[in-house]
Each structure stands twice: as C-alpha cells, then as structure tokens.
C-alpha cells in the first residue's frame, strides 16, 4: 500500500514535468494553430543555461531565473525571426521548419558547450528526503517539482481566466480574425504567448536538470511524451494539458511498476517480465488510442470550436 502511494506520487511528479512542457505547447497550438517541434529545444536551452548559471553563481535560484529567462528570450527571438513566417503556412511546412530548428539548436549547444554532458547538482536545501509516510523517504527535490507544478497550474488559471491578457488569449483561441478586427495587437499577443510558453519550457528544463542528463538532444525524449499529453488532453486546451499530463505521468509510472507483476499472475516469470516490460512501455500509447477512439478531439478538445 505504501509502495502504491509512493508510485502514485512518482507518477504525479513525472506528470508535472510533462505539464510544464505541454501547457506551453498547447497554448501555442491553440492560439496560433502552430505545431512547434522545437519546443523541446527551449527545454534544453533552459537546462543548459540554468546549469551554467548555477556553476558560476552557486545559487540554484539564480540558475532557475537565468534558465527561464534564457528560454523565454530564445523563444521570443525564434518567434520574431522564424515562426512568424509560418502562421499562414500549412502544418507540414511548420513541422519541417521547426524540425530544422531542432537540428540547429542541438548543433548550437554542441558548439557552445561541447559534447560532454553538463552536471547540475540539487541545491543543498533540497537534496535530502522527507518521510512522507512511515518507512517511505521521498526526495525533497521531487516534492519541490510537484509544488512548482501546482503553483504553475494556479498561475495559469489566474492568468487565463482572471486577467485581460488571458481573456484576449482565450478570444484569440476562439476566433482570431474577430479579435484582430477588434483592434487587438495580435502580433504582440502571439510573441507574448510564445514567450510565455517558452518560459514554461525553460522552467521544466531547469527543474529537470538535477535529475536528468543535460546534453544535446535531451529535449526530444520529453517532446514525444508531451505530444502524447496534448493529444490526449485535446489540442489547444490548457485544462486538457493538465489532465493529460497527470494521467500520462501516473499511467506510465504505474504501468512500469505493476504490469510485469500483473502478468506474473498467470504467465511464467520469464515471459511475464518480457511481456510486462514491452506492454508497460506501450501503456501510454494504448491510453492515447483508447481516448482517441472514444473522443477523437481529446478529453477537453474542441470546446471552443
């Protein structure tokens, strides 16, 4: 029972990392109808700059600020220089161009920081563990990640639902011609939204850096899962991104932990291990297929259309 609770906690924590990525990506898609494969590169930029700033200043919070700022600036520069030309193109062009950006950023990182993966240590005040349940020490840093995720969900809610900018963002997602006709500077709004999405990606990057390898191409592994999240949640829906991320995090973690045991109930141990391992790596894709079969627009998708 304790183990199950711990695994659910692990799943939530993994889901939160995915959420930070997915909310930015889905925001950009919902408002600009843009598929941005280079979102993972912003995650990488956040992690690299965060790790470097930490190495120079020794302060995790400064590293965090630097990583988030660098990702936001990179994102906005990317929007102004390249992405802006893609809004009127079809999705294939967007995919090709942003895939090109992935290659560019991976190579850039290699030129600037070299091929050796960087190290980013957990700050001392977060490197211990907290006993969440008797006999279950849980790493404090993972708890901090969950806390940051909850804070971001709250921030997103307030921003989107309670502010004027948020109202424009929602309006832009529903009908962008109309909002432009009403005199809203849609260009600036797009850059701001893109920058905000990049901010969240950078935040995810810095928060992931202490327990992931900071290396060129690190954004792609998480990008694939992020796309699964927003497809499950409904493309363009923030609420969908929250639900999808937590669902994917928990299903993936519990699948890895329990599917092999489940199959051991009626299969010999050797083949139960093989089948369980194979199936657990497919679990989230099975989940995605099931969701799409029942609700092709995703859990919360299509609300505005």
């Amino acid at each position: 029972m304790q183990l199950l609770l711990e695994q659910v906690l692990n799943g939530l924590q993994f889901g939160v990392t995915l959420l930070l990525m997915a909310s930015g990506l889905t925001l950009v898609f919902g408002i600009m109808r843009l598929i941005n494969l280079a979102h993972g590169s912003l995650f990488m930029v956040g992690a690299y700059v965060g790790a470097t700033a930490l190495a120079y200043t020794g302060s995790f919070l400064l590293g965090l600020a630097a990583g988030v700022a660098a990702a936001a600036l990179t994102g906005m520069a990317m929007e102004a220089l390249i992405i802006r030309r893609l809004y009127r193109r079809d999705h294939l062009d967007q995919v090709l161009a942003t895939f090109g950006l992935i290659l560019f950023f991976n190579e850039l990182v290699r030129v600037v920081w070299g091929r050796q993966p960087l190290s980013m240590d957990t700050p001392a005040w977060l490197s211990g563990h907290v006993t969440v349940l008797p006999g279950v020490p849980y790493p404090s840093f993972r708890l901090a990640v969950i806390a940051v995720g909850v804070a971001v969900i709250a921030l997103l809610y307030v921003l989107i639902m309670r502010t004027r900018v948020g109202m424009r963002i929602r309006a832009g997602a529903s009908n962008r011609e109309m909002i432009a006709a009403l005199g809203v500077n849609i260009r600036l709004l797009y850059t701001l939204v893109f920058g905000f999405g990049a901010c969240l990606a950078g935040l995810a990057g810095v928060m992931a850096a202490p327990f992931l390898a900071v290396q060129s191409g690190m954004g792609e592994d998480i990008l694939i899962l992020t796309f699964v999240v927003i497809v499950i949640g409904g493309i363009g829906s923030i609420r969908g991104a929250v639900a999808g991320a937590l669902l994917v995090g928990v299903v993936d973690t519990l699948g890895r932990a329990y599917l092999p045991d489940l199959f051991a109930l009626w299969l010999p141990p050797a083949s139960a291990g093989t089948v369980g391992t194979a199936l657990s790596s497919m679990a989230i894709y099975v989940l995605m297929a099931a969701v799409l079969a029942i609700r092709p627009q995703g859990l919360f998708g299509g609300a505005h259309d």
Partner: peptide, 21 residues
C-alpha cells in the same frame, strides 16, 4: 530482481521504488 527498462527512459522513480521494496 532483474528489470529491463525502456531504451532512452528518462525517469526511474518507479524502478527505484520497486528496487527499495
């Protein structure tokens, strides 16, 4: 115990909890 994880996996929290158990 003998555990095979997915190639390229980034998060090992589930496996580590099993291992401790």
């Amino acid at each position: 115990g003998e555990v095979y994880t997915q190639l390229g996996q980034t998060d090992y929290a589930a496996e580590i909890a099993e291992l401790r158990d």
